[in-house]
């Protein structure tokens, strides 16, 4: 957030239909922040608030009136009198979701080995924007759990989506994590590698999968064959 240095004439702008008073040298992101309107950011760093590249596109808002209509990054969009933006329009949601999707698609998703685990913004965005492809095991560190695989427990996390409703191997009740075995093969391969590293046998993995996501076992089998695990 940019501190309001120049105290001058206040101007009025609208965010999500509500009018806010602001300083002329502020950006939309500043105004939103000052008024508690959540706008997600990745590349914006409050410690270097003067450097705003507008490159992650997470903070996009839609200009509804008073400027060039369309999506604009709020971190660099200067406020102006009569400017009206939406932070919740369908267009905004789609654009932000796509940005996360794109970032995830470039990501190794080796969350277990990642030092950011637990406080990972990207993983949070994945949940916020309902993006599949993140295994349950990325959830565990969020709960400050150590990795079950390393403890010798055959956890189905690495090969199941978050929010799947499968029974958790440890607690016995439905995990709020996932829907089913991962259909995304890339992630599946990472998961299988994790099992192999932890020394689990193929039969055990399949047996586990049979219990937790039996409708997708055939897919898992196919991938395991291709990976030379069967």
């Amino acid at each position: 957030m940019m501190p309001a240095k120049t105290m001058g004439v206040k101007i009025k702008m609208t965010i999500d239909g509500k009018e806010y008073e602001c300083e002329p040298n502020q950006t939309v992101l500043d105004v939103a922040g000052a008024n508690g309107i959540p706008i997600p950011t990745l590349c914006f760093n409050p410690l270097f608030a003067s450097h705003r590249s507008g490159s992650c596109r997470m903070c996009l808002v839609e200009v509804v009136a008073g400027g060039r209509p369309g999506l604009q990054p709020s971190c660099t969009l200067p406020v102006s009198s009569g400017l009206s933006v939406s932070t919740v329009s369908k267009q905004v949601y789609r654009a932000r979701r796509l940005a996360v999707e794109f970032l995830v698609s470039e990501h190794t998703q080796k969350c277990r080995d990642c030092p950011a685990s637990g406080g990972c913004t990207l993983a949070k965005f994945c949940r916020d924007y309902d993006i599949n492809g993140v295994p349950v095991c990325s959830e565990c560190p969020n709960q400050r759990e150590s990795c079950l695989l390393k403890r010798g427990v055959l956890c189905m996390g690495p090969i199941t989506y978050a929010n799947c409703n499968a029974y958790c191997t440890r607690k016995g009740y439905r995990c709020e994590g996932c829907h089913s075995t991962l259909v995304n093969e890339d992630v599946l391969r990472f998961g299988l590698a994790a099992y192999r590293d932890a020394g689990f046998r193929a039969e055990d993995i399949l047996e586990g999968a049979e219990v937790f996501a039996h409708d997708k076992v055939s897919i898992l089998e196919a991938v395991m064959k291709r990976e030379g695990m069967l």
Binding site: S53, G54, S55, C56, R57, A95, L98, A99, F102, L103, S105, E106
Partner: peptide, 12 residues
């Protein structure tokens, strides 16, 4: 390569 949609999107 600066912004996400162009860097990753064009690739996808």
């Amino acid at each position: 390569g600066q912004c996400t949609p162009c860097r990753v999107g064009t690739k996808r």
